[in-house]
Amino acid sequence: MSVQNLSMVITRPGGPEVFQPLTSTLPEPGAGEVRLRVLAAGVSYGDVMMRLGNVPGSPKQPYAPGYDVVGEVEALGTGVSTVQVGVRVAAIGARGGYTTFLNVKATDLVPVPDGLDPLVAGAAVLNYVTAYQLLHRAVRVSAGQSVLVQAAAGGVGTALLDLGREAGLTLYGTASAGKLDLVRRFGATALDYRTQDVPARVKELSGGGVSAAFDGVGGASFSKSYAALAAGGRLVVYGFGPAASRGGRGALATSFLRVMLFNLRPDGRKVGFHFVDTARHQDWVREDLGKVFALLAAGNIQPLVAARLPLRSAAEAHRMLEAGEVRGKLVLIPG
Rank of each mutant, 00 (worst) to 15 (best):
V70L: 04
T107N: 12
A212V: 06
D267S: 08
A123C: 09
E28K: 09
A143S: 14
L180N: 05
W284A: 03
F273W: 15
S313V: 00
S206Y: 00
A143H: 06
S81Q: 10
G173I: 02
Q282I: 14
R308G: 05
L135Q: 00
A151E: 08
A220M: 02
V305S: 07
P16V: 02
V83S: 04
L180S: 10
I333T: 13
G71P: 10
D108Q: 14
G57P: 05
A167L: 10
V55N: 01
L148M: 02
P56H: 03
P27G: 09
V55E: 07
V55Q: 08
V120M: 11
P65R: 11
V156Q: 06
L39A: 14
G335R: 11
G232K: 11
G15P: 08
F275N: 11
Y63E: 03
P16T: 07
S255H: 09
P56F: 10
V292I: 08
A138R: 12
T195G: 06
G97I: 07
V237I: 15
L180M: 05
T195R: 08
G241C: 10
L102A: 04
D288R: 01
V80M: 01
N300H: 15
T254A: 15
L148K: 01
Q20P: 00
G57M: 08
D215W: 10
K60P: 05
T99M: 06
L261C: 03
F256H: 15
L109G: 02
A91W: 00
P56A: 09
A212N: 10
N103L: 03
A230K: 14
V326Q: 08
R246F: 13
K203S: 13
F222N: 14
G207Q: 06
I92Y: 05
D197F: 09
K60W: 00
L6G: 01
V73H: 01
S2I: 02
L76W: 06
G155S: 11
L52C: 08
M260P: 00
D288Y: 12
A121Y: 05
V271R: 11
L257A: 15
V43C: 03
P334C: 07
E72K: 12
Q4K: 13
V69G: 05
L229S: 03
L102W: 05
T25D: 14
V156H: 08
A314E: 05
L332T: 03
